[in-house]
Simulated assay, not measured.
Amino acid sequence: MKILFIGDVFAAIGREMIETYLPQLKQQYQIDVVIANVENATHGKGLNKRHYEEFLFQGISLMTMGNHTFAKKELFDYIDEADRLIVPYNQPRALPGMGSREITILGKKIRVTNLLGITFMDGKSQNPFEAIDDVLKEDTSDIHIVDFHAEATSEKIALGYYLDGKVSAVLGTHTHVTTADEKILPQGTAYQSDVGMTGPYESVIGCDKDSIIKRMKTGVMTPFLVAESVGQLRATLLTFNDQNQCIQIERICIDPDHSF
């Protein structure tokens, strides 16, 4: 089985990159399941219902979120019906949504769990190391992929080793910068610190670079503007054998400097 995980989809450019390249990727790599982090899909923050439905139509089986999950208040109106959406499992209990979901594809039970990091984040989430234990107690899936939406690389690496042999893959999101540390850990869990961003290529993690430079240089809190740029697509391809063991993890990069 081959599972494609698409990194943080950012605004219209990110959505256009999926529309353009996902059919080609599915054909070339014979992909069975597509997962995407979509917390920035609508204008750079949050996810509205129209874009959620577009992703379903394009063949994305499960969608994960992150610290901008509820940036679009419209989500409160449709989240109970969004049965392919996964919000952070360790978010404050008062917030709605499912933090771990299981679907069956080609006879395999595939679970995806979304976790938020707590280092350099807003500090309102439950400790992800404690939270994931609750999921593992009830998990009977064949393949279990964790999207760890976190800032600190050290926290991501630590969780990877903590879950080595307990889940199938730990893939980092949130920083929007692809890391080159993809590997299969000693007990068989696939790991990568960050899958990267699917969005504007000439940007500062998706935002207009001039406005961010001004903010960094002067300290003036300029608004975050979505960059107008050609696109990039960042994804990670996981290959599993018949025993549900991940035997390969591969970065996929599409942009003006990495043609497809």
Rank of each mutant, 00 (worst) to 15 (best):
K214G: 00
F129T: 06
V230E: 15
T189W: 03
K166Y: 09
T239K: 14
A152S: 12
L185P: 02
K209N: 04
P92L: 10
K109D: 08
V38E: 05
Q245H: 13
Q187N: 12
N48Y: 05
K156G: 08
Q245T: 00
E151C: 06
D133V: 05
V135E: 09
D83Y: 05
S259W: 10
E54K: 12
N244R: 07
V9N: 07
I184F: 10
G107N: 12
G66S: 14
G196R: 00
V226E: 08
Y21D: 06
T42H: 14
E130P: 00
L171S: 03
L25Q: 01
K2P: 06
V167S: 10
N127F: 05
V167F: 07
K73T: 14
F129Y: 15
H174C: 11
S61M: 02
H68N: 14
R50A: 15
H149E: 07
F148S: 03
A235R: 08
G231F: 01
D142E: 03
G188D: 09
S125D: 09
D133S: 03
G66Q: 14
T239F: 07
Q126D: 13
L25Y: 09
Y78C: 11
P23T: 10
D194F: 04
G231C: 03
M17L: 00
S168L: 00
N67Y: 09
H144S: 14
Q248E: 15
N40C: 10
D32L: 04
I132D: 03
N48K: 02
L106G: 13
Y191V: 06
Y201L: 08
T42G: 04
E151N: 07
I103N: 01
V220K: 02
V146H: 13
I105S: 10
P96G: 13
T42E: 04
Q187E: 14
M1Q: 10
H51S: 01
M216A: 10
M65Y: 01
F224S: 02
Q27E: 15
T198L: 06
K183A: 15
G188I: 03
I86W: 01
P256V: 09
E19M: 12
T140D: 14
S203W: 06
E102A: 09
I254T: 08
I213S: 09
Q28A: 12
G59W: 01
D8H: 01
I6K: 11
G219Q: 12
E182T: 04
D210L: 05
I143F: 03
I79M: 06
A180F: 00
V9S: 07
K124S: 12
L225S: 03
R84G: 14
L75C: 07
I184C: 10
Q248T: 13
T140A: 13
D142Q: 06
V195G: 00
H174P: 04
Q232T: 09
T218K: 08
A227Y: 05
D83E: 12
R111E: 14
Q91M: 15
A94L: 14
N40G: 13
N114F: 13
D134N: 08
H176V: 05
V9P: 00
N244K: 08
A227H: 05
A190N: 09
S141R: 03
D147V: 11
Y52N: 08
T140N: 13
